[in-house]
Every structure is written in structure tokens, then in C-alpha cells.
Computed example of a mutant assay.
Amino acid sequence: MPAMIEITSWLRIDEDDLIWKATRASGPGGQHVNKTSTAIELRFDVRNSPYLPDDVKDRLTALAGSRMTQDGVLVLFAQGSRSQEMNRQDALDRLIDLIRRATEKPKPRKATKPTYSSKLKRLETKSKRGTVKSGRGRVKFDD
């Protein structure tokens, strides 16, 4: 049986669907960073995942933004630690957090109308502003 990663009580993803790649981290760091591959690139094919419902896929795509490729693959890059294992855990934690946030259904917006007093206040402010602006025109002398 494949190892499953628990996202929520009702949602799990297969660990075999994750593609891990170790690369060299960018930035300063001296000799250590130049010779070890401690940075981790995690890829997860959201579009073709059989474990995610369609509405979660849509919300995850929106949440991921530029981290989502056009093919529907989520790419996370972790290079904060000098340890490859810690970067691997960081990338996995970020993936789980992102999917958890995508499982939360947004609260439906209730349409509201502005109150009568707020309408009056807005119109009063507009007329005051118009009076101020009309006073900025050319000065006319009555002779």
C-alpha cells in the first residue's frame, strides 16, 4: 500500500505523486553551498491528482499563483536550511499548508444595501466638495 500524506481528516495524497529534486542553493554561503545540493524542489501535479476534488484544485490553483505551471504542476522551492532533510520537510509542510487552505470553502458574500443616512452623508460630502472646487475657478470682477 502506498504511503499517504494526511492533509485533513478526509483528504490524503499519495507520497508517490510528489517529485523531489535536490539542487544547489543560490546566494551566498561560501564553500559549503558551492559543493552540496541542499536546496529542494518539490513538484506536485495538481491537475492530474485523483485525490483532490475539483473545487479544491481550483482554489489551490488560485492560491498558488506563480508557483503553478501552465501544465497544472505546483512547484515549491525550499533552500532556507543547510540540511537537505530540513529543506525537504519545509517544502512538504508548505505543500500541506497550501492544500489545507485550499480545502476551506469561502464564505458566501451577502449582498447589502447602503443605509439611508450613509447615502445622505455621501451626497452632502459630494456637494461640499463641489462647492470647494467651484471656488477655485477664475476670479470675476463685477464693475
Rank of each mutant, 00 (worst) to 15 (best):
T38S: 15
L63M: 04
G30R: 11
A25G: 10
A102H: 01
M1C: 12
R88Y: 04
A3I: 11
E104D: 04
W20S: 09
Q31S: 01
A25M: 07
S49Q: 09
T36H: 05
G137I: 06
N87C: 07
V75S: 05
R24E: 04
D17T: 04
R59W: 01
R12K: 14
N87S: 06
D55W: 12
F44N: 08
P28L: 09
I19C: 14
L120A: 07
V56D: 00
K121A: 15
L11E: 08
L98M: 15
R67D: 04
S117T: 13
S127Y: 11
L98F: 03
L95R: 11
A111D: 10
R43M: 11
L11G: 04
T69Q: 12
Y116A: 11
F77E: 00
G72K: 08
G29I: 10
N48L: 09
V139K: 12
P53F: 07
K21S: 10
S81P: 01
S49Y: 07
T8K: 00
T115K: 07
A39I: 08
D16W: 00
V33C: 02
G65A: 06
K113E: 13
R100E: 02
V75I: 13
I7S: 00
R24G: 06
G135I: 06
P53Q: 03
M68P: 01
T23S: 09
R43Y: 03
A22D: 11
A111K: 15
A102N: 02
D142V: 12
A64K: 02
N87T: 07
K119T: 12
G130P: 01
D90V: 15
F77T: 10
